[in-house]
Write a protein that binds this DNA or RNA. Structure first.
Length: 498
RNA sequence: GGCCCCAUGGUCAAGUGGUUAAGACGUCGCGUUCUCAGCGCGGAAUCGAGGGUUCGACUCCCUCUGGGGCUACCA
C-alpha cells in the first residue's frame, strides 16, 4: 500500500461520542496516519429530526481529547467541502446525480404512502415472504411513468426517489477484515430510497456520492454496514465510479446483553464523555479500544497512540465481535495513571477541591502535603481519578464513625494498655517526627507491653484515625496534624476509655 | 423467516498441519505487611459438536449447533 490514502470518519450528530464510534474513528485515524494518508471527518446529518444540538461539537471535542486529529472537517475544510451533508444538499451537490439516474431510467419517483408500504410489508410477512419492495411501474415506458407522476403530483403527493436494483447481479468484494464477501442483488430488499420526500438524500446514497467526490480510498466501518455495501456498490456501478476498499470491523458487544453496544444500554458507561468526567485518561481509552478487535504481535498491553500508529496492521483486525470488559479498561487506566503521576496530580487535586475537602487556595498552599498524602493514601490502587475522593476522605478530611468492632479493640484490656502507652509516647514526640520515629515508637510499645499485631496496631490506628484499616500508619501519622490527632485521641478517650 | 458474518479459558486474545495451546484482565492461593492497597510468586480455567482430508488437526473442507449483524422516507 502506498500514498493517496484517504480515509474518513463520518459520524451522524445524533448523540455524543460513543465508545464504538470512538473505536471506528481511532482505527481510521491509525490507518490514515500509519500510511501517511489523509484523515477526513464528514458529518452525516441528513436526518434533521434525529440530530441533537451539540452532537457534532461534542463528537469533535471528544475526538480531540482522545488525541485524534484530522486533516479535513467542517472546521478546517479541504478542497472537497462542504463537510456536512446537510450543507452539501443545500448546495445542490446530490441533485444532479439523482436527476441523472432518473433521466437514465435507473431510478424513479415513487408516491406510495407509508401506510401502503407498511401494508405491503405486512402482507408479505403474513405470506411468509421476505419483505421486498414491489415495483409499481412494471412494464411501463418512461413516458407512461411520467404520466403517472403527473397524476400523483396533481393530488399533491410528494415522491421519494428509488433506485432500480439489479436483482440478478452479485455484489462481491474483498473485505479488508473479513475477506471475500458476496451478496446477491436480490437480497437488498428491492428498490430502495435514494432521496427522501423532504429532498434529502438517504445515507446509502449520500455516502457514495461523498466518498467518491472526496476521493475516499478506504472505508473502515462497523460490521453493521456489511449489508449496506451492496446497495452502495450499485450506486458506484450506476455512475461507473471506482469502488473504494471496504473493511468491516467486528462490533463491540455489551457483555450483559450479548448484543451490539447500543446508546440505549444504560448498564454500561459508553460515552467517552462519561469516562472523561470520571477521570479516565485519554491514553487509557485509546489503549483499551485499540486492543478491542485488534492485537499487536508481542505480549505488551500498554501502548500510546504513537506506538499504535507505528504498529498498525490492518490484517490483524479481528473478525469476531468483542465484549466490552470494564475491568480491563480500569486496569489499563490504572497503568496510565501510574505511568505519569506528575501529569495526574493536578487532576487529583481538582477532584478533592470539587469534593469540597479543600479550597483551591488551600490546595495551592498545601501542595506538597497533598502530593504526599495522595501517595500515602494509595493512589497506585485507583482505577480513575474520581476515586481519590473516597480514598482520601478518611482520615485526611473527615473522621468516620467508631464501629462496634473498633470499640472492641479500644476497650479490651490490651487496647487500654496500648492506648495509654501510645498517648504518652505520642505527646512526647516532636511535631515533625518522621515515619521512622513513629515506627520505632510503636515498636517500643510492642516490646514493653509484649503486645503485637492487630492488638497493638488497631487501637493506635483507631484512636488516631477512626479507621481499622488504611495506609501505612507511620507514614500516615507524619501527614496528620498533631493538634488534630491529639484532639481525636482525647475525644476517643473521653467517650470510650473514661 | 431470509441474507451475511463469526466461533481458542469468565473476558480480550496469540496461534496459520506436528507447540508443554503464549500473554493480559478477572478469579483463587501463598508471601511481604498492623490492615487495605501495592508488589512478588504460584494455581485453576480454553480449542462448541459431529463427520471428513491427512502419517498427523485448534489450524483445511462439510454439516450441525451457538452467537451476532442487517432486513426503514435511521445513519
Amino acid at each position: 500500500m502506498t500514498d493517496d490514502f484517504r480515509v474518513r470518519y463520518a459520524p451522524s450528530p445524533t448523540g455524543y461520542l460513543h465508545i464504538g464510534n470512538a473505536r471506528t474513528a481511532l482505527f481510521n485515524w491509525l490507518f490514515a496516519r500509519h500510511y501517511n494518508g489523509t484523515f477526513v471527518i464528514r458529518i452525516e446529518d441528513t436526518d434533521a429530526a434525529r440530530n441533537i444540538a451539540d452532537g457534532e461539537k461534542s463528537q469533535l471535542d471528544n475526538l480531540k481529547w482522545l488525541g485524534l486529529d484530522w486533516d479535513e472537517s467542517p472546521e478546517n475544510p479541504g478542497e472537497y467541502g462542504p463537510y456536512r451533508q446537510s450543507e452539501r444538499n443545500e448546495q445542490g451537490i446530490y441533485q444532479p446525480y439523482i436527476d441523472d439516474l432518473l433521466k437514465r431510467g435507473l431510478a424513479y419517483k415513487s408516491y406510495k404512502t407509508s401506510e401502503q408500504l407498511k401494508a405491503e410489508r405486512e402482507a408479505q410477512q403474513a405470506a411468509k415472504q421476505a419483505p421486498h419492495y414491489v415495483y409499481e411501474y412494471e412494464g411501463m415506458s418512461q413516458e407512461e411513468r411520467e404520466a403517472e407522476y403527473a397524476k400523483y403530483e396533481a393530488q399533491g403527493l410528494k415522491p421519494v426517489v428509488r433506485i432500480r436494483v439489479p436483482e440478478d447481479k452479485m455484489y462481491e468484494w474483498d473485505d479488508i477484515v473479513k475477506g471475500h464477501i458476496s451478496i446477491g442483488g436480490k437480497e437488498v430488499g428491492g428498490d430502495w430510497v435514494i432521496q427522501k420526500a423532504d429532498g434529502m438524500p438517504t445515507y446509502n446514497f449520500a455516502v457514495v456520492v461523498d466518498d467518491h467526490l472526496m476521493k475516499i480510498s478506504h472505508v473502515l466501518r462497523g460490521d453493521d454496514h456489511v449489508s449496506n455495501t451492496p446497495k452502495q456498490m450499485m450506486v458506484y456501478d450506476a455512475f461507473g465510479w471506482d469502488i473504494p476498499k471496504f473493511g468491516h470491523m467486528a462490533l463491540i458487544i455489551n457483555a450483559a446483553t450479548g448484543k451490539k453496544l447500543s446508546k440505549r444500554d444504560n448498564d454500561v458507561l459508553q460515552f467517552v464523555e462519561q469516562y472523561r468526567e470520571l477521570g479516565y485518561q485519554p491514553e487509557a481509552l485509546d489503549n483499551f479500544i485499540g486492543l478491542l478487535g485488534w492485537s499487536p504481535k508481542g505480549e505488551d498491553e500498554i501502548f500510546s497512540l504513537e506506538e499504535f500508529k507505528n504498529m498498525f496492521d490492518e490484517t490483524r483486525l479481528s473478525k469476531a465481535n468483542a465484549k466490552f470488559d470494564q475491568k480491563k479498561l480500569e486496569w489499563i487506566n490504572n497503568q496510565w495513571i501510574r505511568r505519569d503521576k506528575d501529569k495526574i496530580m493536578p487532576q487529583l487535586i481538582e477532584e478533592l477541591v470539587k469534593a469540597g475537602f479543600i479550597t483551591e487556595d488551600e490546595a495551592k498552599a498545601k501542595h506538597d502535603w497533598l502530593v504526599q498524602a495522595i501517595d500515602v493514601a494509595g493512589v497506585d490502587g485507583i482505577s480513575y481519578t474520581r476515586q481519590i475522593v473516597d480514598l482520601m476522605r478518611e482520615p485526611f478530611f473527615q473522621l468516620g464513625d467508631i464501629t462496634d468492632e473498633m470499640k472492641e479493640y479500644l476497650t479490651s484490656e490490651n487496647g487500654r494498655k496500648v492506648f495509654a502507652a501510645w498517648e504518652e509516647a505520642y505527646k512526647a514526640l516532636p511535631e515533625d517526627a518522621d515515619a521512622d520515629t513513629y515506627m520505632k515508637t510503636i515498636r517500643a510499645i510492642q516490646n514493653n507491653l509484649e503486645i503485637k499485631g492487630r492488638e497493638l496496631w488497631n487501637p493506635i490506628r483507631i484512636a488516631t484515625t477512626h479507621q481499622i484499616q488504611g495506609p501505612n500508619l507511620p507514614e500516615l501519622l507524619v501527614l496528620l496534624d498533631k493538634k488534630q490527632v491529639l484532639k481525636t485521641m482525647d475525644d476517643v478517650k473521653a467517650k470510650y476509655l473514661a
